[in-house]
Amino acid sequence: MIASESIERPTLQRRKTANSVLALRDLSGGLLRWWLWGLVAWCDIKQRYRGSVLGPFWLTLSTAVMIGSLGALYSRLFHMDLATYLPYLSLGILIWGLISALLTESCTAFISAEHVIKQIRMPLSVHLYRVIARNVIVFGHNLVVFVVVMLWFRVQVGWADLMVLPGVALLMAGMVPTGLILAAMCARFRDIPPVVANLLQVIFFMTPIMWRAELLGPNIDLAIYNPFNCFIDLVRAPLLGEWVPATSWGVALGMTAAAWAVAFPFFARFRARIAYWV
């Protein structure tokens, strides 16, 4: 310590900003950088399918094959009319695909952005928004399958379909805090991703996607209060020309509020540590 000790130093006046303010700034500042995560998400998609003829429509094609064959089989198993079953099944699978991909990929949102997190200061939420944007793009491609099904079976389009917009908005509002917890937890504990993947597989069969809730008979509550079913309902029901049940809205709103209530304090507390974890 030669040169540095002799100078009298001015004390820094600035006090540390509260963690919750910093967390809020991170989440909103990240959202404002839409051009960043939008572009990177788009590049992710392009990279996955570079050099293939169909490009991202491979996704559409494989979804179409899956829905087509499952539809043909299960409509017979459940003795259901293909014209009502196939639109129901295709929407269920598409929305489930979105939700499960969001949850699985949120797990690696921070881990896979390690080199960026360590080198350039930017809101951490950017990496989560990128994952969400990427999967929404995939969902958009897959939606083509439903449009075809809709045209084929002449599903009625009406004003009730517009209720899909608040439904998608609530789904996203619920996915951000859930993804945030998963992304941060997985950066710290590397054995969470396989657990999540496993649970999702079980939940897929437990949730009315391939089967209808009514088939449960007296146990229908198992489906009605299943949060996954509720979130799927928000998008599925309007597009099938039905009204979303109030319970679905209630459960989805409650789950979203609960997720924020856990995620926000958690993120505020550990946000600064994430760079050290990844």
């Binding site: 960043l36 572009l39 590049c43 350039i120 200061r121």
Partner: peptide
Amino acid sequence: PLFDSALGLNPDATGYENIILRGVYMG
């Protein structure tokens, strides 16, 4: 910060695309 010359580059994208990508990462 100029720590890593490969930051934000996508090996499968063209040079032009990467110029934009890298710049976007830099803010």
